[in-house]
Amino acid sequence: MIPASFEYVEAASADAAIAALTEHGDEAKLLAGGHSLIPLMRFRLATPGVLVDIGRLDDLSYINDGGDHIAIGALTRHRALETSDMLAAEAPLLRHVASQVGDPQVRHRGTLGGSLAHGDPASDLPAALLAMGGSVVAKGPGGERVITADDFFTGFLETALGEDELLTEIRIPKAGGAGWSYQKFNRRAQDWAIVGAAVQLGANPGVALVNMGPAPMRAGGVEAAIASGSSAADAAAVAAAGTEPPVDLNGDEAYRAHLARVLVERGLIEAQT
């Protein structure tokens, strides 16, 4: 399948990218690794008039110690995440989830920022960000703002990023040795999760679900249950509360709700051990 024509703009800096976005408005799309966008473009499900390529902004590729958090450049590739010693020590859930994205070729090209900004509820990394209580830095014409993960994912393939904003950094609070688990259930390793559950325990336990609603989401009921000392099984029992899972060949609502309970329970148990 062949993408429709577009105008290609290479951004030499984050500011240049923001300027290009400002100039072209909703005609424009950012191109990072391209592994979320290009597949849509090949089916002409996305036909942006202008692509602003930020793939060469190497200064947005880093994993730094930010004191109480790890700061990750938006253009950091999944491969860099899954092999990072710093993440192994301070944010092992994110490191592991990055290793579960797609396949090696996808992980060599795909970027953390690109994956999060795509806002796909079936995607792995948004769940990690939610479970870890992370936030993102958005840069626009008016400067930078920090958006928490909870506020970031607003709907199906929609985020709080403005049309003229660029996601520049992801901030993950240090996990401090908290137990964690990522449970991804799919039919083939390369496939999207039918349902997934990201769990991180510790002072602020987080449980997030993959593919259980229009947007990446937390399992708030489970988190509350853990906080109140419920067993894994009891906490997991409410995993599907308030979800609106999609219906497709792989699963209907009831099956996905069941999977959410199973995976959350497994995740909680694994995270506790």
């Binding site: 191109l31 391209g34 597949p39 692509l51 793939g55 491969r79 396949d103 070729q105 090209r109």
Partner: peptide, 27 residues
């Protein structure tokens, strides 16, 4: 394929495997 699924188009870019169907030449 046309969905980045099959890997038949895998090449190395700067030493790493990538699916060349999921990149623009411009990139």
């Amino acid at each position: 394929c046309d969905t980045s699924s099959c890997g038949a188009c895998t090449v190395h870019i700067d030493g790493e495997s990538v699916k060349s169907c999921t990149m623009f030449a411009a990139q």
